[in-house]
Amino acid sequence: MNASSEPLTSALRIADPGDDAALAARLAARDPAALREVIACHGAALHRACYRMTGDGHEAEDIVQEACLRLWDQAPKIAARHPIGSQAAATLRLGGWLQRVVTNLAIDCLRRTRRLSDGEVPDSADDTPLADTLIEAGERDGTARALIMALPERQRAAIVLTYYEELPNAEAAEAMDMNIKAFESLLHRARAALRQAWTAQGDAP
């Protein structure tokens, strides 16, 4: 696991309660620095989750960019519903809001891709020959990617959010617009499907 695959939790929970409301107010005032601050705070984590879901770096960047622009558009409404100093301001989490948007956009992207293509898993990492020192790492990366990409969209999102991003089940369910019971059921099926795929590859000891 490289440096960019660190859990998202720390990045999403850095802000103190109420700071996100102030940030939203600055976004509503059309402050570019606020948007840059949001990208610096949440961009990497959003891109990481989105990349693991789509398997495409360019697609992941486009999705994160769209999520940030939607936050830019919706900032006046968000700031109006969470005025600074109010009790609602303490409950505002822009990271969770962005995570929900990115997850939905990634799922939409995967469904759209599945409709337009024959369903082949993008596996561009294996197309180009690598140096011998990178062959083994590339094979391991390809194996993990194939396991993740073999899952359906929502199961894939559940594994990415809970295992890679280490989100609690409640926050992951919120990011996927599901209730906690339904999400736990989905996560259970996703883990079972992941283990079955791994067993089928014959990598299990």
Binding site: S5, R48, V64, A137, D141, A144, R145, L147, Y163, D203
Partner: peptide, 10 residues
């Protein structure tokens, strides 16, 4: 195996 899924940076 899952931890080997590397992610490029932005």
């Amino acid at each position: 195996v899952l931890d080997d899924y590397a992610v490029p940076g932005l």
